[in-house]
Computed example of a mutant assay.
Amino acid sequence: MPGLTSPKIRRTAGARLAVVAATAVLPLALASCTDNASATSSGTTDGPIQVTSTASDCKVSATEAPSGNLTFAVKNDGTEVTEFYVLAEDGLRIVAEVENIGPGITRNLVLTAPAGKYITACKPGMKGDGIRADFTVKDSGQQATVDADLQKLVDTGVTQYTAYVKDQTEQLVAGTKEFAAAYAAGDAAKARSLYAATRMHWERIEPVAESFGDLDPKLDAREADLEPGQKWTGWHRAEKDLFPPAGYKALTAAERSAIAKQLVADTEELSTRTRTVELSADKLGNGAKELLDEVARGKVTGEEEIWSHTDLWDFQANVDGARIAFENLKPALQQKDAELATDLDAKFGALQAELKKHAKGDGFAYYNELSKDEVQQLSALVDSLGEPLSKLTAAVVL
């Protein structure tokens, strides 16, 4: 799930949970078509904010909006798949996003935004910095009323998920140190045995991790995603060295040591930053869908772990993270939309049952061992879960 380093939007981040003010509530992207909204002469809009993305342009129908619930109706008038982002003023932190918008498709990005300065960005072809523009949210002075009992359920779910992120981050740091020590010492067999299991902690909280735009490319950039001149570090740099393709020249002991040292340092920095991240129900719902998008884009295709073929470990971890977010919100969802809660339970169960068929010991079969039919079945179950999961945030956000 390259990043926002110069600044640059990561290739296909799934889903990412923004590091924003505690008052920000940022619901998930919803796939639907909308009517056109009329922009006022002041640059604001009294309806959905229309966004038109092409290969060379990102037209946003308003430059300002009042704080509260905002809807961006993003239409792709180009020939490539596009994405749309709302970024914090620094251009690094991802506040909200909608991905995988095919040509001719319109998808909604719904968020509740506090007053402040933001940046909008279209990313045609899912490459580069994106086509950016400033966007301002002005204080509307309006406060939403909420149901106290439902709010308590939501708050409990957020607290539980925050604890889950903390636990996974701690395990990621510990596992990374063990992996890095083995890798730096040249113990390739031990490092290979630790690689997939340790990365699962990253993959479970990937939307949180990816919200830090400068750390994500350092830790998780694939070779195919590198920009010209970008230094390649992180997990996939070590992966190629541990699971080398034909003709590959192995890294020297000094090079391995440098990769290992940087990997630990960046993971510890991630741990420090996650202690201050502000989570909310919308971020849980967004993150759940984004994790499933990560599965659909990288794990099902086998592109994420191109040398190790440990994609099913990542697949399982992404599903774990999405399911935990859903389950933390399920008590509130059962009050708001019991039918959706039941549907999500069933479809998570079906996907997990299919994954279990490929389990081997404490891990999984290598992805290149799966037949085409087995891959297609997994893909179909991911697609089946994706549609109802896209409704989660809108159902629980108050």
Rank of each mutant, 00 (worst) to 15 (best):
Y367N: 03
I119N: 06
A191W: 05
L398Y: 13
S384P: 00
I49W: 02
Q230I: 12
C33Q: 12
P2F: 00
D35L: 01
L87I: 08
K240V: 04
A238S: 15
A29D: 13
D77E: 14
L4Y: 05
G302V: 01
K360R: 15
T79E: 12
V173L: 05
L194C: 01
G287C: 09
N318C: 02
V295I: 10
V397M: 07
T272Y: 11
L385I: 07
K356Y: 09
A209C: 04
P27H: 00
Q50S: 10
D241C: 09
R93C: 02
A184F: 05
L292S: 01
S41P: 00
T5H: 15
K123I: 09
E203G: 02
L242K: 07
D134V: 10
G116T: 13
D77M: 05
R132K: 14
G78N: 06
L370W: 01
A394L: 04
T12Y: 09
L28V: 06
M200V: 02
A246W: 06
T44P: 00
L284T: 11
G125V: 11
S308P: 08
D220T: 06
D187S: 07
G234F: 13
D149Y: 04
R10Q: 13
N36L: 03
T267M: 03
L344R: 09
S38T: 14
Q168S: 13
G175H: 11
A37E: 11
E290D: 13
V137H: 04
A246P: 01
A62Q: 08
A265K: 12
G186M: 11
A254R: 07
E303P: 00
G116R: 04
T23V: 05
E239D: 14
G141V: 04
L389S: 06
L333Y: 10
F326V: 04
E223S: 08
L284K: 10
K117P: 09
T79P: 00
T162G: 09
A62F: 08
L172R: 08
V154C: 00
S6A: 14
S61C: 05
Q352G: 06
A148M: 14
D337H: 02
G349R: 11
T45R: 03
Q334C: 04
L4F: 01
E89Y: 05
A332W: 07
K123P: 00
T34G: 13
K299E: 10
G175V: 11
S193M: 03
Q334E: 15
C122A: 07
T136N: 14
A180I: 07
P27M: 05
M126P: 01
G47S: 13
A281N: 03
T156K: 12
G68K: 02
T40C: 05
L87Q: 10
A188Y: 14
Y118H: 08
Y85G: 04
V173P: 07
Y164L: 02
L270F: 09
V208T: 13
I119A: 01
Q143W: 07
Q230Y: 15
V95N: 04
D187A: 04
R11G: 05
A350E: 15
A254E: 15
R16L: 03
